[in-house]
């Protein structure tokens, strides 16, 4: 008998008390919890997103589609970022105003070490969740492979408001495709491992800048 059969057999014997014929749906799960917490207008939701992102030490900027290229250029210049990795499908106009920077396009051939030599990464996102201050990446063309938002120390993430903003975790999950690799990001990397006190900045990008563009 395979281990698989052995373990499944043990489970069935262990569940001798479960009536024969009971199906999973016969076990009640009451979903009377809230789908979202509080009533908000779209603008208030964006405001809450900004607040919660900032609460966990993300730096939040608000701008318009027209002013986005200038803003991104200024943020990169402010850090003195010279090499920028960009996903293959990032709207080219986003970086149109960035001068004197070397753009490295996300490809499978890029080595981890080459990526480690990059200063910043600029991406879009799949969805942003206001109640938790979370942005979610799903590796779409404007977000790229998972590692490009991980190895560089500086991440600029652009969120379209209101199109990409939802209120709650429940609404966020509904918009996401589980078949894609997903990365949920709530602030820069952090740890509570020293005396259970939160410190920002360990392995992931230590600076997370979120640019909310109001369309």
């Amino acid at each position: 008998m395979s281990t698989r059969e052995q373990v499944l057999g043990r489970i069935r014997r262990a569940l001798a008390d479960v009536p024969h014929g009971e199906t999973p749906d016969d076990v009640p799960v009451n979903r009377d919890y809230l789908r979202m917490h509080g009533e908000r207008s779209a603008e208030e939701t964006a405001e809450l997103l900004a607040e919660n992102l900032a609460d966990y030490r993300a730096i939040v900027h608000r701008t318009t589609t027209a002013e986005l290229p200038g803003r991104i250029a200024a943020l990169l210049a402010g850090r003195g970022a010279g090499r920028i990795v960009v996903p293959a499908g990032l709207p080219p106009e986003w970086l149109a105003a960035a001068e004197g920077v070397e753009l490295v396009t996300d490809t499978a051939a890029l080595t981890h070490r080459e990526l480690d030599a990059v200063d910043s990464v600029v991406t879009g996102c799949a969805v942003a969740i206001a109640e938790t201050g979370t942005i979610v990446l799903d590796a779409s063309p404007d977000q790229g492979r998972r590692r490009i938002t991980l190895v560089p120390d500086h991440h600029i993430c652009v969120v379209r408001v209101p199109a990409q903003v939802v209120d709650s975790v429940a609404e966020g999950l509904e918009r996401l495709d589980p078949a894609r690799p997903l990365t949920w990001i709530s602030g820069p990397s952090a740890t509570s491992d020293i005396e259970l006190d939160r410190v920002e900045g360990v392995h992931g990008p230590r600076t997370l800048e979120v640019v909310l563009i109001h369309e």
């Binding site: 590692r147 589980p178 997903l182 709530s186």
Partner: peptide, 20 residues
């Protein structure tokens, strides 16, 4: 960790071509 959401959550389903 007493946070609204932890900094990173990774979700993956099997393997993805040329990513991870």
């Amino acid at each position: 960790t007493a946070e609204r959401m932890n900094p990173y959550t990774s979700m993956w389903t099997g393997t993805t071509d040329e990513d991870g």
